[in-house]
């Protein structure tokens, strides 16, 4: 009986751990995209009048 519960526990821990790491990766990438888009947007504003502004990355 113990083996049975340990077995199912390991399956779910494994799957949830993987799922969690996917969620974190996606979250971090979305934040990066937001920051990059913001940087890109502000550069286009400053770049419009004349000299291109320095990259913020």
């Amino acid at each position: 009986m113990t083996y049975l519960f340990v077995a199912y526990a390991i399956v779910w821990i494994g799957i949830f751990a993987y799922s969690y790491s996917l969620g974190r990766q996606a979250q971090r990438l979305r934040e990066q995209i937001e920051a990059l888009e913001a940087a890109l947007g502000s550069r286009q504003e400053t770049a419009a009048p004349g000299a291109g502004g320095p990259g913020e990355a």
Binding site: L29, I33, L36, E37, A39, R43, G55, A57
Partner: peptide
């Protein structure tokens, strides 16, 4: 897909 978007944005910025 998100990784690729980050890559593209970085290239655009550089």
């Amino acid at each position: 897909e998100l990784k690729q978007r980050v890559q593209r944005l970085k290239e655009q910025l550089l």
